[in-house]
Amino acid sequence: MAKISIHEWFSKRKKEKESDYKIERLDVPGNLWVKCYKCNAAIFSKDLKENYKICPKCGYHFKLSAKERIEMTLDENSFKEFDQYIRSKDFLDFTDSKPYAKRLTEAIAKSGLNDAVITGEGTIEKMPVKMGIMDFSFMGGSMGSVVGEKITRMIEHAVESKQPVIIFSTSGGARMQEGIMSLMQMAKTSEALGRLRLNGIPYISIITDPTTGGTSASYAMLGDINIAEPGALICFAGPRVIEQTIRQKLPPGFQRSEYLKDHGMVDIVCSRNELKATLVKLLKFFSN
């Protein structure tokens, strides 16, 4: 991409609607400045990166890729990935505006991921954990067979090794292109957590923007400890669906992390720059 002036870049940005894709463009050389979606402040992109991608002006948490989360959370070079080579299949021959098979190929090319979750193990201040990290850039973090299978296998590894589980969720919900099989992933992942629980192994759920539908109604909400990033949309039914159903404006802050905390659904709303320190305290509690 050619270098453009900040003025040109902002005027171009203005025309675009907010989407997760643009956040990724931050890494493209030439995009030196980023505009905060919430307060419109111009932020030097290097500063943003160094600040855990939190807006220094208003605290808005930009979306992170799974890889960025791994870097921010785990001890350096401690991460070992599980089940890297599982991919989704278009087993229903599902075509909406385009075939699911094509959608998958495009998502793989665009995101550089095989699906919407990375799973594996690593250490946090030398304490071992099993971890699943969702990535919104792969088909909106939707949960299909692969997400369900990788999460389940990771939890099963945790049961065997008796190590705590941490899952970072971000998801638009079930992947409709897999029909009922996407719904069944809720059952599969939840029963794996049921087994984890019977074995007395802790699970920390970290819920990030946005986490909705089938993902929130399964593993995202089932943490022994539920942590939400500030301002994240966390819900069962999305705001638009609710507005259409009740034909009524929704209260301010509805379904955001702070609202969920006020209503008793999450333990902590934790800013990203304090997340690792918080995890260390929690892991210490469980292991000591």
Binding site: M186, A187, S190, E191, L193, G194, R195, R197, L198, S216, A217, S218, Y219, A220, M221, L222, I234, C235, F236, A237, V241, I242, T245, I246, Q248, L250, P251, F254, Q255, H263, G264, M265
Partner: peptide, 24 residues
């Protein structure tokens, strides 16, 4: 049900917990 009260009282948590508990 997708509504304000349902969300407020944790529809996602209620469904999720049932899944985990039914398993056991």
């Amino acid at each position: 049900y997708p509504g304000i009260g349902a969300e407020e009282r944790g529809q996602a948590e209620a469904v999720a917990k049932n899944l985990r508990e039914m398993a056991n």
